[in-house]
Amino acid sequence: MPENCIYITRSSAIAARALAGEMMVMNSVDSTFFTLNEVATAIFQAADGHTPLREIVRDRVCGQFDIDPEQALADAEQFVAELSSHGILLVSNQPLASEAP
């Protein structure tokens, strides 16, 4: 297993709904609201806490969208860092228990 594995899971403090191909996510703690595009939605939905981000990008992003794998991973890490900073995703270098109810 690579040393720099990143694991992500959805926070239990959020509510999310899909509409017309976009995912809408709201943090119940501070009421911040986000809409995710298709790629971001694919990553968000696969955030189960035990699949490494690299695998999620490979299987759910590169497998479905025409994107360069390294660029896709870099974009995904940036996206994950941003959602993490808003409490939407939890990030760890070890597998996480799923928080989503």
């Binding site: 239990s12 403090a13 509510a15 709201m26 119940s28």
Partner: peptide
């Protein structure tokens, strides 16, 4: 409150 936020969404 997450449940209420879900309801609102």
């Amino acid at each position: 409150d997450r449940r209420l936020v879900e309801k609102l969404l």
